[in-house]
Design a protein around this nucleic acid. Sequence first.
DNA 1: AAAATACTTTAGTGATTTTGTCAAGTATTA
DNA 2: TAATACTTGACAAAATCACTAAAGTATTTT
Lengths: 155, 155
Amino acid sequence: MLRLSTKGQYGVRAMFEIAKGDPEKPTNIRQIAERQDVSVAYLEQILNTLRRAGLIQSIKGPGGGYILSKTPSEIAIGEILKELEGPVAITSCLDPEEGCSRVETCVTHLLWRSLGEKIQDFLNTITLEDLLNEEALLKEAGTTRTISLTWGTTG
Amino acid sequence: MLRLSTKGQYGVRAMFEIAKGDPEKPTNIRQIAERQDVSVAYLEQILNTLRRAGLIQSIKGPGGGYILSKTPSEIAIGEILKELEGPVAITSCLDPEEGCSRVETCVTHLLWRSLGEKIQDFLNTITLEDLLNEEALLKEAGTTRTISLTWGTTG
DNA sequence: AAAATACTTTAGTGATTTTGTCAAGTATTA
DNA sequence: TAATACTTGACAAAATCACTAAAGTATTTT
Ligand code: FES
Ligand code: FES
């Protein structure tokens, strides 16, 4: 339950891949596609959305590609997902575009709203920089799984 | 994003409706359907799943219906959803039945896992009793929205 | 100017999932 | 034994997902 679409997943992975690159040298779409194992055509859609949202910039011509509009620490995962999948809305009742007449008296509504806010908070806290740091830790530890996540459950 | 299917939503609402009833007198399916505005046929599917999972018991014959197998405080929302929608799995990589070869080195995987665990923890903390208490508060406050949720975001 | 590179945009499509409905049961009790 | 009520499995319309395809626009190098 509560699955994220591939669009959101690929979007985050693509942003991560761009973040890993040199801020001066754009990462081109084929590199992203290859490293993250996603089709170029599908990535085009995704990166386009993210560019229109202002999260990345594109540079055309030979040697072109994509760069981040802000530093990795300023880009939260929640922002990326929001652009690709809209705001967190556990139920249609919570969707600004749909709504529900029961809202006023519905107890479960409060539950879903509360859960949604918790998720949103979490996603807005984690940034691309956190992912970069995490990868550094992963490599250090070799194949051993890192537990020292600042956003882990044990914390 | 991250929408719950209606099956899960209706399931929780149905369980709440049963929890509201007298533990001695079963709530019949038509009452649930009417009060929660869901079709009887669809509810049958849902309640059947929940019964097989042991969360509710059915009582046949005239005056029959459904009762909870445990007290409301012993039934977490997470249990209900798990039966109707399977475990939380933000990505297919996290699904026990699917998996992914990248798991070992994938940073985003750690992110989704962490988020999933947070959601799971939350859903396992809230019980039907919490919902009952919340409704009592709601009625007390009239149309004013209650903010005093123990599981609210204001903490 | 021309060619190469690379991003941009819009359509369309097959597979899958969701959201139910329908119909024919079985079990229990007044 | 009739009425009530739960049980089960099959099925289907609708929506969403996860892409693919193709033609276009912009920029830079030669
Ligand atoms: S059913 Fe829509 S708010 Fe509860
Ligand atoms: S893509 Fe499957 S674990 Fe990251």
